[in-house]
């Protein structure tokens, strides 16, 4: 049996390579964001990354100032110049000033953005996880999202073809893991974590608590252990 337990986040992300595609779980700010793995990746320094995440974050300084519990977003990776492309539903928030690292880099032409409606993002991940070649959705039909996509009318309604998403690595936050890697989440901190955990080649998880195998009720496990490759316990 492979030992999946790592002593630190930095050891768990050491082989994320230049040019890798990395999924980041959570919703965008607090609640389900694998913040310790994100900070470890920023220290590790891999470049030219493609980041797949719901939101682009507001950046280190602003996040530190406005969010309880300190720094909570993925903006540090953009600030460090580690990202070539972002795929997600909220690269920047219209209600915030245009000062997020991703928005600044995008406006300077230094990073590419693929804008994906949030439900389409979730479903593209599920397709990637489940070996499907894509799906037709009515979401985005007749908007900029439909540009250069295959269209199909089914029962009189217009749909567009969306393709699966996979990644080299996924950074995930869960509440508890057992030593096999079975995961449970806490409340709304679940969000994008389960679908991303299933859609990447190497899934790295930070958890509040690691428990012996057999201690999690099999009826409540959300992510089965075969999707999890590395576990780091970061007590909160």
């Amino acid at each position: 049996m492979v030992n999946k337990i790592f002593d630190s986040c930095s050891e768990a992300v050491v082989d994320i390579f230049d040019g890798a595609t990395v999924m980041i779980g959570g919703f965008g700010s607090y609640g389900g964001l694998p913040i310790n793995l994100i900070v470890a990746l920023s220290g590790q320094g891999a470049k030219d990354l493609t980041i797949i995440a719901n939101m682009g974050g507001v950046g280190y300084e602003l996040s530190h100032r406005i969010k309880p519990g300190g720094y909570q977003d993925s903006g540090i990776l953009f600030e460090n110049g580690q990202v070539r492309k972002f795929i997600g539903s909220v690269p920047a928030l219209g209600g915030m000033p245009p000062t997020s690292p991703l928005e600044i880099l995008f406006n300077e032409g230094r990073v590419e953005i693929e804008m994906v409606p949030q439900g389409t993002l979730a479903e593209r991940l599920r397709c990637g996880a489940g070996g499907l070649g894509g799906f037709y959705t009515p979401v985005g039909a007749g908007t900029t999202v439909a540009e250069s996509k295959e269209k199909k009318v089914i029962d009189g309604r217009e749909y567009i073809l969306e393709l699966p998403l996979t990644a080299d690595f996924a950074l995930i936050k869960a509440y508890k893991a057992d030593t096999f890697g079975n995961l449970v989440y806490r409340q709304t901190a679940r969000c994008f974590n389960p679908v991303m955990a299933m859609a990447a080649k190497v899934t790295i998880v930070e958890v509040d608590e690691l428990v012996p195998t057999g201690q999690l009720d099999p009826e409540i496990i959300v992510t089965p252990h075969i999707y999890v490759n590395r576990i780091v316990e970061v007590p909160r």
Partner: peptide, 16 residues
């Protein structure tokens, strides 16, 4: 002037 702002779940909700 804000080409980086995203739709979040708005499109899905408006359609569904």
């Amino acid at each position: 002037g804000r080409p980086a702002t995203g739709m979040g779940g708005g499109m899905d909700l408006a359609v569904g």
